[in-house]
């Protein structure tokens, strides 16, 4: 078999690319050794996974392990991720590294809203995933996914740098499956604006105002023996109460779905 670059290229073309490209792409003879043919998705995703800049944003203990991951022993630069950007406008990935408190969550949601698409969120550690050891605390949000969508969860308290790297590689896998023709961020009005949580007597999500009103001011259906207390204390809901709240939830969803 003749062993010239041109032959190799023809072999590659026949094995690596899809069939219909063979006939449509004409490569001049003198360029045959210098051209590689692949899909646009592959290039697009390869460039995005190889330079995914994280937001320079540490919350708690897990941030220390994030710094250790970026430092010389674990060397995040191998994945093109050593450029941590302090500005949300320049970053692709938000690593929520630690406990999300109620006082902090408006700032996190605001930063998430400021990030440009395509944006990804990685919840690092037990606290960011679901509240972790501090879940029962009065100032702790039980998981950042109650407010913003999360792509990858990395468990651990704190996760080791190896675990974080594994999570990042999982995220790379997710990115590699996306297609430029179908991704949402090139379409109109698809980037979702998350309403900023408000610090009231306790933190509340503006999307849930109606639900909260039902509970604090509304019909007796949702009130229980605790109504005499100054604060509404948690109690297991009865089936009637649950049905009523489902109605409220459905009303809210119907309202949201209508165009503004």
């Amino acid at each position: 078999m003749e062993d010239s670059p041109a032959t190799n290229f023809q072999d590659l073309k026949s094995t690596q690319t899809q069939n219909y490209l063979h006939d449509t792409i004409q490569v001049p003879d003198d360029l045959q050794a210098n051209v590689m043919v692949t899909t646009l998705d592959k290039v697009y995703n390869w460039s995005r996974t190889s330079s995914m800049w994280p937001l320079l944003f540490g919350l708690a203990c897990c941030a220390i392990e994030m710094i250790a991951t970026a430092a010389s022993r674990f060397d995040l630069a191998r994945f093109g991720m050593e450029v941590m950007r302090p500005s949300p406008r320049q970053s692709d990935l938000m690593i929520v590294s630690g406990t999300v408190t109620k006082k902090m969550v408006p700032a996190i949601v605001r930063i998430y809203n400021q990030m440009a698409e395509p944006r990804y969120v990685l919840a690092l550690g037990a606290c960011a995933t679901g509240g972790g050891p501090f879940k029962e605390g009065y100032n702790v949000v039980s998981g950042i996914d109650t407010y913003i969508p999360v792509d990858v969860y990395v468990p651990g308290c704190p996760p080791t740098p190896e675990a974080l790297i594994y999570g990042l590689l999982k995220l790379h896998k997710k990115v590699e499956r996306q297609s430029i023709a179908k991704v949402s961020w090139y379409k109109k009005n698809t980037s979702e604006f998350i309403p900023i949580p408000v610090l009231g007597p306790d933190v509340f999500d503006p999307r849930q105002v109606e639900m909260i009103r039902e509970y604090t001011l509304g019909a007796g259906a949702v009130r229980g023996p605790a109504a005499a207390e100054v604060r509404v204390l948690p109690q297991l809901l009865t089936a009637d109460q649950k049905a009523h709240l489902e109605q409220v939830r459905a009303r809210y969803l119907a309202k949201v779905k209508q165009p503004a």
């Binding site: 009065y138 999500d205 297991l236």
Partner: peptide, 20 residues
């Protein structure tokens, strides 16, 4: 715990309080 509160999160509000 999330099932105890209709909004499914770690917060409680005073009786008679109007979030709007």
């Amino acid at each position: 715990h999330e099932d105890k509160l209709p909004w499914g999160s770690n917060s409680t509000y005073p009786e008679g309080w109007d979030p709007e």
